[in-house]
């Protein structure tokens, strides 16, 4: 029997919201999939096109960037810029024939531990449905 596909998902999380929310989710003993690899950022506005593309090239099946709620960015506009940048990368991915649903942007606050777990579940479920990234094909794979 084939092993169930366990995706690798990289979550770029803002220190002031999503990363703290992940902490809270842990303190609340909330279960969320171990597929999520969290990268702490000083602000979601630090995200760069190259970093996202690099994550996919290096084997991520999915990537998401999580920033503060709109209007609540610690650096005022970082989350808006991150969202714009993520949307631009999504457009680029579609243009090159790579499913942009593998990339997403979320807004949440430090108090949203349950929402963090929900997003982790939602993204894991989505990527499981999409299957392994076409960039992760091993030699000999027929599909």
């Amino acid at each position: 029997m084939a092993e169930e596909f366990e995706p690798k998902i990289v979550a770029f999380c803002c220190h002031y919201c999503a990363y703290s929310a992940a902490d809270l989710a842990g303190s609340m003993r909330l279960q969320y999939p171990s597929n999520i690899r969290i990268v702490e950022m000083t602000c979601s506005g630090n995200i760069d096109h190259r970093v996202i593309l690099n994550a996919f090239e290096e084997g991520a099946d999915g990537v998401y960037v999580a920033g503060c709620m709109e209007g609540d960015c610690h650096f005022l506009k970082g989350n808006y810029r991150a969202k714009k940048r993520v949307n631009h990368v999504k457009q680029m991915l579609d243009e090159i024939g790579f499913d942009s649903r593998r990339l997403e942007f979320y807004n949440l606050s430090a108090a949203m531990g349950p929402r963090f777990a929900e997003i982790a579940n939602e993204m894991t479920q989505r990527i499981k449905e999409l299957g392994p990234s076409p960039l992760n094909k091993k030699e000999g794979d027929t599909k």
Partner: peptide, 10 residues
Amino acid sequence: ASELRIMRQL
């Protein structure tokens, strides 16, 4: 460069 690499790998 990254876009071209991904495209060609696909």
